[in-house]
Simulated scan of single mutants.
Amino acid sequence: MTRTQATPDPATQAVPHDNSPLDAPVVREPRHAPVAHLVRGGVVEGVHHGSVVVLGTDGEVRLQLGDTEAAFYPRSALKPVQAVAMLRAGLPLDGELLSLAAASHSGEERHLEGTRRILDLASLGETDLRNTPDMPFDPVVRDAWVRDGRGPSRLAQNCSGKHAAMLWTADLNGWSLDDYLDPAHPLQQAVAETVEDLTGQRVAHVTVDGCGAPLFAVSLHGLARALARITTAAPGTPEARVADAMREHAEMASGVRRDVAALMRTVPGLLAKDGFEGVQVAALPDGRAIAVKIADGADRARIPVAAAALAHAGVDPALLTGFAGAPLLGGGRPVGAVRTVRALEPAQPVPCA
């Protein structure tokens, strides 16, 4: 597919398209619905709105709550798709370094060292990165940095592995490096094409993510469809390589204390990726997939709602008991919790492949 795109001017702009037959999701205020309640002492203290979609093995929608077709930003939940795009463009990574290329990492030493390895393979250095300097994402690691008097760095920022991989992909193709984050750059055009291919819809809008990379607006349904395509792809394809790498090296794609890594370790064959502002996507090897967006971006509702959606998709609820969310405390003792809405309760158990 040949794409044409104007050079971006503001931080947010519409994306011109060619004559692709795909439809773009509608840009509108999302029509979210209640997905979880914050219950304290038996009384509903707060309500989290959001949207949820569950896909079956045939790709058909088995459950939808809220607005699953409006345009939204997947944030870092789109990273597996970006990694597929880089492999399609010739990036020669597999294993833990490919997992890091799709990571929102915690800033542990393994992540920093892995990013250095990718840069070394490309004969590049940390100064070539264009992501936003930041402190490590993991609070334990971040506190240690503060005690040691260390400040923000591009290497510690949670997207550094992706940026290092983007630089190497650009270099391998003879593309310019200084402007690799420009939406009009050949690398980002290749990413946009892969986003449209795997989601099955045109990009509705493009802006800039927190790390500085282009961020593409799709629908929640499209995001779930993309991850399902990645997990069901034939062995050896870029999609399958990304899925294998992230599942086999879950801590490299996130961190040792991250719930998304624990979820992949717990549910056999599951590929899962989180994103800022309450986004979670996950898919099984048979194509069952879920995607969640919490409207207010509250992280405390993301995993409980995602776990409930996975149970609705047929994952054994016994495997998901540890993902119901942290208890709500009063005076130091549990007095409540986040409870998902009744509509997310599975109608009947479906065997997990």
Results as ranks from 00 to 15, higher is better:
349 P>V: 09
335 V>D: 01
306 A>L: 04
352 C>E: 14
323 F>E: 02
343 A>M: 03
311 A>V: 06
341 V>M: 04
323 F>K: 10
314 G>P: 06
308 A>M: 01
321 T>E: 12
344 L>Q: 03
312 H>P: 03
307 A>I: 12
311 A>C: 02
310 L>Q: 05
323 F>Q: 05
319 L>T: 02
312 H>V: 05
310 L>V: 05
317 P>T: 05
324 A>P: 05
313 A>W: 13
318 A>V: 08
320 L>Y: 02
343 A>S: 11
329 L>G: 12
348 Q>A: 15
304 P>H: 08
327 P>T: 10
306 A>F: 14
309 A>L: 11
316 D>C: 01
326 A>R: 15
341 V>F: 08
352 C>F: 05
324 A>C: 09
340 T>I: 08
343 A>I: 07
326 A>G: 05
347 A>S: 10
326 A>Y: 12
322 G>M: 10
345 E>Y: 00
325 G>L: 12
305 V>A: 01
351 P>R: 14
333 R>M: 06
347 A>H: 15
325 G>V: 11
306 A>I: 05
322 G>L: 11
315 V>L: 01
349 P>D: 08
324 A>R: 14
317 P>A: 02
336 G>H: 12
343 A>G: 09
310 L>C: 04
344 L>F: 06
313 A>N: 06
341 V>S: 02
321 T>A: 11
328 L>I: 15
326 A>C: 03
346 P>W: 04
320 L>N: 07
325 G>W: 09
322 G>V: 13
349 P>M: 13
308 A>G: 04
336 G>F: 10
326 A>N: 15
323 F>W: 12
328 L>T: 13
305 V>R: 07
323 F>L: 06
311 A>S: 05
351 P>L: 13
331 G>H: 05
345 E>C: 00
319 L>S: 00
343 A>H: 09
346 P>I: 05
305 V>Q: 00
328 L>K: 14
352 C>L: 15
348 Q>L: 15
334 P>C: 06
314 G>W: 08
349 P>R: 14
351 P>S: 05
306 A>R: 02
306 A>T: 14
338 V>H: 12
328 L>G: 03
331 G>I: 11
336 G>I: 08
304 P>L: 10
334 P>Y: 09
343 A>Q: 15
313 A>V: 07
317 P>L: 00
318 A>R: 13
328 L>S: 08
336 G>W: 07
318 A>L: 11
348 Q>C: 08
342 R>C: 00
303 I>M: 14
309 A>G: 04
344 L>E: 00
324 A>S: 11
335 V>E: 10
334 P>F: 08
311 A>N: 00
346 P>R: 08
327 P>A: 06
329 L>A: 07
309 A>D: 02
345 E>G: 03
309 A>F: 06
347 A>W: 14
331 G>W: 07
337 A>D: 10
350 V>D: 00
309 A>H: 12
317 P>D: 02
308 A>I: 09
337 A>G: 15
329 L>W: 11
311 A>D: 00
303 I>P: 01
319 L>E: 00
336 G>Y: 13
313 A>E: 00
348 Q>K: 15
324 A>N: 07
341 V>K: 12
